[in-house]
C-alpha cells in the first residue's frame, strides 16, 4: 500500500511543479488563455486525449465492460474516436482561424452578438461544472480506495493537485501537464495488459472461457450480457450506436475538446492532431476494455465492477506496474479536471466579466488569475460539501453541451444563411430541449426509449430554434462578412509542402483502420466463433 501512496504522491507533486514552471513564461492573457497560439502537435494531441479520457473512461466504462457490456462499450469507443476528424475539419480549424480566446468568443464574433456570448458561456459553465464535479468525485474516490484516507481529505488533495498550476499557468500549464499525464496513462494502459492476459491464462484461453461463460453469458458476444441493460441484442446494439454518435458529437464540438485547437500553432496542426488524437483514443480505450474483460476471467467476484482495474493493479501486476497503472488512472482524472477548471475560469473572465478588461496586459492577467482562483474555490466548496443539488448538476453530464452547441456550431461555419437570431434560439432550444426531458425522466423514473434520448430531443429542438430564429430575423450583412472571412485561407497557411504532409496522414489513418479491423477479426471474432462452435 505504501508504495502506491508514495508513487501517486510523487506524481501529483511533479504535476504541480511542472505546471507552475510552465506558468513562468506566461506574459499576457494570450499566453494564459490560448498558450500564445504556438502549441505543436504533441501538446494538442496530448491535451485532446487527456481532457477527453477521465475517470469516466478508466473506472466507469471499464466497470460496464466488467459487468457484461464489452461490445457495447467497444462500439461507443470506436464511434466516438472518429469525432476528432469530423470535428477538426468542420469546426476546429475554423475557430482557430477566428483568432479568439474561447469558444463563446467565437460565437460572439461570428454573429456580433453579446447575448449569444452570454448564453454560450452559461451553457458551457453549467455543463463543464457538471462534468468536472463528477471527475473530481472519481479522482477522490480512487484516492480513498488507494490511500485509505477520508474522502473529504482526498477531495482537497485532488483539488490542490490541479488548481495550483491551472490558476497560475492557465492553458500553458494545462497543455504541458495534460501531455505528460496522457503519456503516463498511455504507458499504464499498455504495460498492464500483458500481466492481465498472462493471469487470465493467455489470450486464446481467456477469449475461449469468456465466450462460454455461464456466470455472465454473452459477456463478449455482440449481444452483450442480456441481464445488464436491455433484454435483446438488437436493443443493446442500437444503444451502443446511438451513444457512440452522441459522444462523437461531444468530441466534435464540446469546449473541452475544441478549445484545444485554439492553441495550435497553425491549421495544419489542428488537422494532423485530429488524426493522432483519434488513433490515440482508440488505442487507450481498446487496451482498457480488453483488460477489464480479461480481469473478469481472472476474478469474477469483484463487487464494485468499476474498481476492477484498481484490483488488477494491486493484485495481478508487479508493484511498479501497478503503481504506474494507478498513477495513470489518477492522471486521467486530474488532467480532465485541470482542463475543465481552466475552461470555466477562462469563460468567466474572458466572456462574462468582459467589461473588466483594461489596457494593461499585466492587470488583465492578474484579473484572469483571480477569476480562475475564485472559480477554483467555488468548485472546491461544491465538491467538498457535495450538496444534494449537485447530484442534479452531475446527472446532466457532458452531453448537454453537445445538444445545445452541436447544430449551431457546425452551421455557424457552413451556413451563410445562419442569422444571429437563429444561432441564439438554436442554442437555447437545444439546451432546454435536452435538460427538460432529462429532468423529467429522472424525476418520474421513466426510461425513455433509445430514439427519444434527451440528447436527440435537444438536437431536434435546436434545429427548430435555428429555423424559427432565421425566419424571425434574417441574416445581417456583418454576419455574412464574418462567414466569408472564415472561409478565406490565411496566407500563412499556404505551403505546398505542409499541405502534402497533412494530406498524407489520410493514408496513415486508412492503414490504421485496416489494422484495427484485422486486430478485431484475428484477436476477437475468429477465436470467439471457434469457441462457441465447440
Amino acid at each position: 500500500m505504501t508504495a502506491y501512496i508514495i508513487g501517486i504522491s510523487i506524481a501529483l507533486v511533479l504535476f504541480i511543479i511542472i505546471g507552475v514552471i510552465a506558468g513562468r513564461s506566461v506574459r499576457d492573457t494570450n499566453d494564459y488563455y490560448v498558450a500564445g497560439r504556438r502549441a505543436p502537435i504533441i501538446l494538442i494531441v496530448g491535451s485532446l486525449i487527456a481532457s477527453f479520457l477521465s475517470t469516466g473512461a478508466f473506472l466507469g466504462d471499464t466497470g460496464e465492460v466488467y459487468a457484461g457490456f464489452f461490445m457495447g462499450i467497444v462500439i461507443v469507443g470506436i464511434l466516438q474516436a472518429s469525432g476528432y476528424v469530423y470535428g477538426a475539419n468542420l469546426f476546429g480549424k475554423y475557430i482557430r482561424r477566428a483568432q479568439v480566446n474561447t469558444v463563446p468568443e467565437y460565437f460572439a464574433k461570428r454573429f456580433s452578438s453579446k447575448r449569444l456570448r452570454i448564453l454560450a458561456s452559461v451553457t458551457l459553465i453549467f455543463a463543464v461544472t457538471a462534468y468536472m464535479l463528477s471527475t473530481m468525485q472519481g479522482v477522490s474516490t480512487l484516492m480513498t480506495v488507494i490511500t485509505g484516507l477520508d474522502y473529504k481529505w482526498c477531495v482537497i488533495i485532488a483539488w490542490l493537485s490541479f488548481t495550483i498550476f491551472t490558476v497560475y499557468s492557465g492553458s500553458k500549464g494545462v497543455l504541458i501537464t495534460d501531455t505528460i499525464m496522457f503519456l503516463i496513462f498511455l504507458v499504464a494502459a499498455l504495460t498492464g495488459i500483458p500481466y492481465i492476459v498472462k493471469a487470465a491464462g493467455g489470450w486464446s484461453e481467456a477469449i475461449n472461457a469468456l465466450a462460454q461463460s455461464t456466470t455472465r453469458p454473452g459477456i463478449i458476444a455482440w449481444t452483450n450480457n442480456l441481464d445488464y441493460m436491455y433484454p435483446t441484442g438488437g436493443q443493446n446494439l442500437l444503444w451502443a450506436i446511438v451513444y457512440g454518435i452522441v459522444w462523437a458529437i461531444v468530441v466534435m464540438v464540446s469546449p473541452w475538446q475544441t478549445s484545444r485547437y485554439l492553441m495550435a500553432k497553425d491549421e495544419h496542426t489542428v488537422q494532423r492532431s485530429s488524426i493522432w488524437a483519434s488513433i490515440g483514443v482508440v488505442i487507450v480505450t481498446t487496451a482498457l476494455y480488453f483488460s477489464s474483460v480479461f480481469i473478469y476471467k481472472i476474478n469474477p467476484y469483484i463487487t464494485d465492477s468499476s474498481t476492477n482495474l484498481i484490483w488488477a493493479a494491486m493484485n495481478v501486476m508487479p508493484m511498479i506496474i501497478g503503481v504506474v497503472l494507478l498513477t495513470g488512472i489518477l492522471s486521467a482524472g486530474v488532467s480532465s479536471a485541470s482542463t475543465f477548471l481552466s475552461l470555466i475560469g477562462s469563460t468567466l473572465t474572458n466572456d462574462i466579466l468582459v467589461n473588466k478588461k483594461t489596457d494593461s496586459p499585466k492587470k488583465n492577467l492578474r484579473i484572469s488569475r483571480i477569476g480562475m482562483g475564485v472559480v477554483g474555490v467555488i468548485v472546491l466548496v461544491l465538491a467538498f460539501f457535495n450538496p444534494p443539488q449537485i447530484f442534479w448538476i452531475m446527472y446532466f453530464g457532458g452531453t448537454v453541451i453537445a445538444s445545445a452547441w452541436g447544430v449551431v456550431a457546425i452551421t455557424s461555419v457552413w451556413s451563410k444563411k445562419m442569422s444571429e437570431s437563429g444561432a441564439f434560439w438554436g442554442m437555447l432550444f437545444g439546451f432546454i430541449g435536452c435538460v427538460i426531458p432529462k429532468t423529467y425522466s429522472a424525476l418520474s423514473g421513466i426510461t425513455l426509449p433509445i430514439y427519444l434520448d434527451p440528447f436527440f430531443i435537444g438536437i431536434v429542438m435546436s434545429v427548430i430554434g435555428i429555423l424559427v430564429g432565421n425566419k424571425v430575423k434574417k441574416v445581417s450583412i456583418t454576419a455574412i462578412a464574418e462567414y466569408e472571412k472564415l472561409h478565406v485561407r490565411p496566407e500563412s497557411e499556404k505551403d505546398p509542402q505542409n499541405d502534402r504532409i497533412t494530406y498524407r496522414l489520410m493514408y496513415i489513418y486508412i492503414i490504421f483502420g485496416i489494422l484495427l479491423g484485422l486486430f478485431f477479426v484475428i484477436a476477437y471474432a475468429l477465436p470467439y466463433m471457434k469457441a462457441i462452435s465447440k
Binding site: L79, L90, A221, S274, M506, I510, L516
Partner: peptide, 30 residues
C-alpha cells in the same frame, strides 16, 4: 455478427479517412 462488427470497425475509420482527405484538399482551395 462479431465478424461483421470487427470488419465494420475498420471500415468506419477508412470512411473517416476519406472524409479527412477530401476536407484537406477542399481546404487548400479556400
Amino acid at each position: 455478427m462479431e465478424l461483421v462488427l470487427s470488419i465494420a470497425f475498420g471500415a468506419w475509420f477508412i470512411i473517416a479517412a476519406i472524409f479527412y482527405g477530401y476536407m484537406v484538399r477542399r481546404g487548400e482551395k479556400e
